[in-house]
Design a binder for these strands. Sequence first.
DNA 1: GTCTATACTCTGATAGAC
DNA 2: GTCTATCAGAGTATAGAC
Lengths: 207, 207
Amino acid sequence: MANGQAEDRPLTRIQQKNRQTILDAALEVFSQNGFRGSTLDQIAEVAGLSKPNLLYYFPSKDAIHAQLMATLLDTWLHPLRALDADGDPVAEIMAYLRRKLELSRDFPRESRLFANEILQGAPRMKAALEGELRTLVDEKAAVLRAWAAAGKIADLPPHHLIFSIWALTQHYADFEVQVRAVLGEDHDPYAEAQGFLDTLFRKLLAP
Amino acid sequence: MANGQAEDRPLTRIQQKNRQTILDAALEVFSQNGFRGSTLDQIAEVAGLSKPNLLYYFPSKDAIHAQLMATLLDTWLHPLRALDADGDPVAEIMAYLRRKLELSRDFPRESRLFANEILQGAPRMKAALEGELRTLVDEKAAVLRAWAAAGKIADLPPHHLIFSIWALTQHYADFEVQVRAVLGEDHDPYAEAQGFLDTLFRKLLAP
DNA sequence: GTCTATACTCTGATAGAC
DNA sequence: GTCTATCAGAGTATAGAC
């Protein structure tokens, strides 16, 4: 083994800090250029480290990206996991919508990293999409279906209802350049989106 | 000048056919990997031509991409241009929605090429977004605002209403891998989306 | 018009001094 | 732990034979 982190010894504080710096720089670069379009030189420059030093902390470009992917899916699914079958139907869905929009606003780079991966055919995440993601969505879709059957919300195809929340919230992060180009300077896209999407889903969900 | 197409002489039929073959292959490759992530080797292989032969028809990788971008924006804006201020408000918006969804279904590669460009910060299209696109959207937003003022449709922020149509329809092309992973084999995403989005916008637009 | 060969640059990764 | 130097391979583009 050429370096410390490949062994089981715990990382020193400086190692942890540098690994975090690298991952943050990699998030910046990968989220804008995709995996193939990004270079170690770019990541090294953003991180303020030399290229060989990057490869002291991670064995390869692939390993850096894999580490980002591993934490990404969890971050991404967390808001949906929190949807509570025992809560008030409309309130639960509206809360999920709000959490997703906040995720777009506060973590746009993560959103774009995810979008890049999916756009490119999800080569490093397909298994997780067909496994973990699908299982979770099916589970929550069943909850939505039960709420509709009980007359608590409108009767809509639950999977597409979930897709619509994803599409509408992630759009503001992934297409941010376009949104800002169209709206100009004097707008607060996320504040406006919150009001608009609130109205949209209240109308949509009304039985 | 090293080759014919840089001069003003009209292209021969074989030249036009080869240029089209190359552009189609480039669309396939660029839409999946982005500009930096794509290579001339990949495009040449998909096109069934040698790499130097590619560069006989186009002066550079950049030129191929630029040609695709030039036609893309027009294709992309066409459905919105067709929104008629003198037509029936709800019918016009629903027709626009349908045209956009058909565009996603029939031209998913174009949708992903566009998404890649925007995700990467629109380095080759920013001017067009702030110019041509913004002008068109502002014009149609005024139409929507007038319809709302006349009580023909619900009073909603027109720009965000347009964004929602973009987000919801393009999602099915750009995130197709995820949609299929979640839905599994026994679904027709676009057929279902058409019904769902139809319901969604009828509810939303009702005054 | 199309191909082979090749020039030159960029990129991921390693060696080895300090 | 971090750096300079460097290698091997991939990538864009060109030269020149046919």
